[in-house]
Write a protein that binds this DNA or RNA. Structure first.
Length: 636
RNA sequence: GCUCCCAUAGUUUAAUGGCAAAAUAAAGCAAUGGUAAUGCUUAGAUCCAAGUUCGAUUCUCGGUGGGAGCACCA
């Protein structure tokens, strides 16, 4: 048979040789690195014979796909260990995920696996690893598979959902066989470096109407170092958890009297204000106008907008003077009332109206999570009304604006274009196609690539989503640009065109931070609480060496800095210098100024930056210039 | 909302069916300092409700809140 390699070279091999045989014939070290292969693009286990001419790609250890196969194999390993410990266990699905794997388990009637049992399971897994058993693929008919898995109702359900006549594969290692597509690593001996992480509930087939299985999460790597590094990262994430830092740095709190309703403490309020000021500043430059619409409006409005029908259960309501009112879950209906308040000429378009709008949504209690998921939050909303021919340019400019703002925070991102849903959508297919193309063209017009999410658009229009990647490699969806074909019709908005006729404008919703609350939560973790100077609640901590002799000079510096709008505090407690330095460091204050005899005598100051060891002595003027320019440049 | 886990000073943690321990923060006193913790003193807590019990912070049950996820996220 002829084997075509990915570099295009073709070689002749005996029929029935496996990928591993071929790899070995090239070089044993290559074979050692191979985890599985792709034959004619199809995933193949290394030991599976190749029967005819084919293309062959070896998937090596250092690739994402290899790690996925490893983790998937590890989920089988875990299932086999569980089966030994809990003989009546049944299994749902057990895939590899972003940073590991999970398996959904029903351990048996009346049995619960708890965190404490994870060690037991890990030990059993280690035993199986040391048994060094191979993963063996088998293929069978649907009927045979149903028969084989007769003991497991979940597997039966999965098999029953497959088409008749399809070939079903199973993988066996040792005494455990699982329904699986593959591919897997050759042997359990590769699965030495794993860790079970946590356990939780998960609905069977992801449907809340179904029973819940126990989902056990774990992670597996090719080397012990990689595993250790990953566990370090998990630890770091826990250290930088915004709920923890929010408490330690006194940024925000959430009271049991209002689950999901964050309180901003003075430090957090300062930080938030910086984000707002910056937002207003760039939006003024981009010719936005600003409004504020009421928190609470008559139910009739929400009937017009359609929210009453669709989201009633998540809206807070109140009866006032026998009229029903609802607290806004979105800003757009209010914004549309403002648009309709006056007539608009085609000459005025695009009209860009921004609103930092506080919205309330009754989220399920279990969904709440620090600042990441709250019940009231502030959207950095804006609605843009324009002519159809303005979409590409306007969206292009928006993308540039998003790019500018994200780069200030050193957040990398990628764009996703979500297109028309399969069935639940309004408007004509032609308009959808045109809109989707406009969004795509806008990306291209500013040289940005995007990934398409087919069918993932809102029912009212396509959208561009901005997925940010933070300093700990997690992805967050914040920004969004959405075309809306629904509300302009429902609210019957119009502009007057050059012929004096009424026309329907195109409406765009967009948010960059998304939600101020959530964005701040992300920033807290992204920066680990060590904010750049422009955002830091306290920018400068002034520390006199001796209160008696140096406090006057310190107060003078404080006044000078305050005059320059620098957020400064004096630590004049009767504590030793080292103590105050330590505290300023733990509070992650960007600049600590130490003032003693030397500074007073020379009319200077000595500063030390957060996280740095060395200190520098400069004149007050030099320091002011330096810190002001840093703040003005937003830390860039 | 669902599954599992958890609830002790402001915070982080300890202990117990019979006076609840410490660190840190706070307050007071002393020490007057040069780059990550000066010493001493004081004050401060068992989430709420019911039950079992002579006695419950501890056991049981309900509630509330929190965590890991699932479902949801216009």
């Amino acid at each position: 048979m002829k084997i075509t390699f990915i570099d295009g070279s073709i070689k002749e091999y005996n029929d029935g040789m496996s990928s591993l045989d071929i790899a070995n014939s090239i070089s044993p070290s290559l074979a050692k690195k191979a985890v599985f292969s792709k034959v004619n693009g199809e995933n193949f286990d290394l030991d599976r014979p190749i029967l005819n001419d084919a293309s062959l790609e070896l998937i090596l250890r250092d690739s994402e796909e290899a790690l996925e196969a490893l983790n998937h194999s590890c989920s089988h390993l875990m299932a086999s260990a569980i089966k030994r410990l809990y003989p009546n266990a049944m299994f749902g699905v057990g895939p590899a995920i972003e940073e590991g794997f999970y398996y959904d388990v029903n351990p048996g009637e009346g049995i619960k696996i708890t965190e404490a049992d994870l060690i037991k399971i890990e030990n059993e897994m280690k035993k199986i690893v040391s048994e060094n058993v191979e993963f063996k693929r088998q293929e069978l008919s649907k009927e045979a598979a149903l028969d084989f898995f007769s003991y497991d109702k979940y597997k039966q359900e999965i098999i029953n959902d497959l088409e008749d006549g399809v070939i079903i594969s199973t993988y066996t290692h040792g005494d455990f066989t699982d329904l699986c597509r593959g591919p897997h690593v050759m042997s359990t001996k590769l699965l030495k470096h794993f860790k079970l992480l946590n356990i939780s509930g998960a609905y069977w087939r992801g449907d809340s109407k179904n029973e819940q299985l126990q989902r056990i999460y774990g992670t597996c790597f090719f080397t012990e170092e990689d595993l250790k590094r990953h566990l370090e990262i998990l630890k770091e994430r826990a250290e930088k958890d915004h709920r923890k830092l929010g408490r330690e740095l006194e940024l925000f709190m959430i009271s049991e009297y209002g689950p999901g309703f964050p309180f901003w403490l003075p430090n957090g309020m300062t930080l938030r204000k910086q984000l707002e000021d910056y937002w207003y500043k760039v939006h003024r430059r981009e010719n936005y106008q600003f409004i504020q619409t009421p928190i609470m409006l008559n139910k009739d409005l929400w009937e017009v907008s359609g929210h009453w029908k669709n989201y009633r259960d998540n809206m807070y309501t109140s009866e006032i003077d026998k009229h029903e009112f609802a607290i806004k879950p979105m800003n757009c209906p209010g914004g549309l009332l403002v648009y309709k308040h006056s007539l608009h000429s085609y000459k005025d378009l695009p009209i860009r109206v921004g609103e930092l709008g506080l919205v309330h949504r009754h989220e399920a209690s279990g969904a709440l999570n620090g600042l990441f998921r709250v019940r009231n939050f502030t959207q950095d909303d804006a609605h843009i009304y324009m002519r159809e021919d303005q979409i590409i340019e306007e969206v292009g400019n928006l993308i540039r604006l998003f790019d500018e703002i994200y780069s200030v925070f050193n957040l990398k991102y990628h764009i996703e274009l979500s297109t028309r849903p399969l069935d639940k959508y309004i408007g004509s297919v032609e308009v959808w196609d045109k809109s989707e193309k406009a969004l795509a063209d806008a990306c291209e017009s500013v040289g940005k690539s995007y990934k398409v999410n087919p069918g993932d658009g809102a029912f009212y229009g396509p959208k561009l989503d901005f997925k940010l990647r933070d300093s700990m490699n997690r992805i967050w969806q914040c920004g969004t640009i959405q075309l809306d074909m629904n509300l302009p019709v429902r609210f019957d908005i119009s502009y007057i065109d050059e012929n004096g006729e009424k026309k329907r404008p195109v409406m765009l919703h967009r948010a960059i931070y998304g939600s101020l609350e959530r964005f701040i939560g992300i920033l807290i973790e992204h920066y680990g609480g060590a904010f750049p100077t422009w955002l830091a609640p306290v920018q400068v901590k002034l520390i006199p060496v001796n209160n008696q002799y140096h406090l006057d000079y310190v107060e003078k510096i404080k006044e000078l800095l305050l005059d320059e709008d620098i957020r400064v505090e004096v630590d004049s407690r009767e504590e030793k210098l080292g103590y105050k330095i330590r505290e300023a460091q733990t509070k992650k204050i960007p600049y600590q100024l130490v003032i003693g005899d030397n500074e007073v005598k020379n009319n200077q100051l000595t500063f030390r930056q957060y996280g740095k060891q060395e200190s520098t002595t400069v004149s007050i003027e030099q320091f002011v210039m330096m810190i002001k320019s840093e703040i003005k440049n937003l830390g860039k």
